Simulated scan of single mutants.
Amino acid sequence: MPKIVDHDQYRRELLKQCFDLFAERGYAALTMRNIAQGLGVSTGTLYHYFPSKEGLFEQLVRETTLRDIQSAIAAAGQQECVLGRVEAALEYVAQNEDFLRKQKLIWIEFYQHQHRESGAPTEVFHRVCQENEQHVAALLGLDDPKLIGFLSSVVDGILLHRIYEPQSYSFRDHARILIDMVKLYLTDRGSLRPLD
């Protein structure tokens, strides 16, 4: 009897393994043949699931980002108040800091490569950022796009800063300050009761 393969699950497993390849060798250094060899599959199998290296990478961006946001939502969604949800989401980032820093570096390298090749902005990041910000806004229960964009930018900045200065303050130290800033911002805008 032939083995029944869940193609979508298999594609996700291949993507998950690709992350480590891109983290170790970089986007520009890999070819589809290198990726297939690293995954232990034929090049034909890889092309069956992904039309090109760029297409594979764009799916990787979407899949890993969606997985991260779903995990953060699961962690933060158990909190009743906005600040509790912000704190839980930031704790998720702190617990996964190493992976998320690697992710940022891979995304930056892809962006540089694509920009050198075409000179055009990379649309996949724009779409993923918009989707993420919608998920984060729903999770936090906030209808304030500027605040959501600010939170995303600060978290990205902290992760990048920690690459350059790993011995400086921890992510949790920075997150504590960010939570205090959000608390003041929400209080000032009337979204929270005044602080005692």
Rank of each mutant, 00 (worst) to 15 (best):
V5P: 01
H7G: 06
Q9M: 09
Y10F: 08
Y10Q: 11
R11W: 04
R11P: 02
R11Q: 12
E13A: 12
Q17R: 15
Q17E: 10
C18V: 05
C18T: 08
F19D: 05
D20Q: 10
L21Q: 00
F22W: 02
A23G: 00
E24M: 05
G26L: 02
A28R: 13
A29N: 11
M32K: 02
R33C: 00
A36Q: 07
A36P: 07
Q37A: 13
G38K: 06
L39I: 10
G40Y: 11
V41S: 04
S42I: 09
G44N: 08
T45S: 10
Y47W: 11
Y47I: 07
F50G: 06
S52C: 06
S52E: 01
K53Y: 03
E54L: 04
F57N: 01
F57A: 00
F57T: 01
F57R: 02
E58R: 14
Q59R: 08
L60I: 00
L60C: 01
V61L: 03
T65Y: 00
T65K: 02
R67W: 03
D68C: 06
I69F: 08
I69D: 07
I69Y: 06
S71Q: 15
S71G: 15
A72N: 02
I73Y: 06
A74L: 12
A74Y: 07
A74S: 12
A76P: 08
Q78W: 01
Q79H: 03
C81D: 14
C81M: 07
V82Y: 00
V82I: 14
E87D: 14
E87L: 03
A88T: 05
L90W: 05
Y92H: 14
V93Q: 11
A94M: 10
A94V: 10
A94Y: 07
L105S: 00
L105R: 15
I108V: 13
I108D: 10
E109K: 06
F110T: 00
F110Y: 15
Y111W: 13
Y111L: 14
Q112H: 09
Q112M: 12
Q112N: 05
H113L: 06
H115D: 01
H115G: 00
R116S: 11
R116A: 14
E117A: 15
E117F: 04
G119E: 03
G119T: 09
P121G: 01
P121M: 02
T122L: 14
T122A: 13
E123W: 03
E131A: 14
N132Y: 04
H135Q: 15
L140M: 09
D143T: 08
D143V: 04
D143I: 03
D144K: 09
P145G: 01
K146M: 13
K146S: 10
F150R: 04
G157K: 02
L159W: 03
R162M: 03
R162K: 15
I163Q: 05
Y164T: 13
Y164Q: 15
E165M: 12
Q167R: 14
S168C: 06
Y169T: 07
Y169C: 10
R172Q: 13
R172C: 08
D173V: 07
A175N: 10
A175F: 11
A175K: 08
R176H: 15
I177G: 09
I177E: 13
I177N: 12
M181E: 12
M181T: 12
K183L: 04
L184V: 08
L184F: 08
Y185F: 11
D188A: 13
G190P: 08
G190L: 01
P194L: 09
L195I: 10
D196P: 15
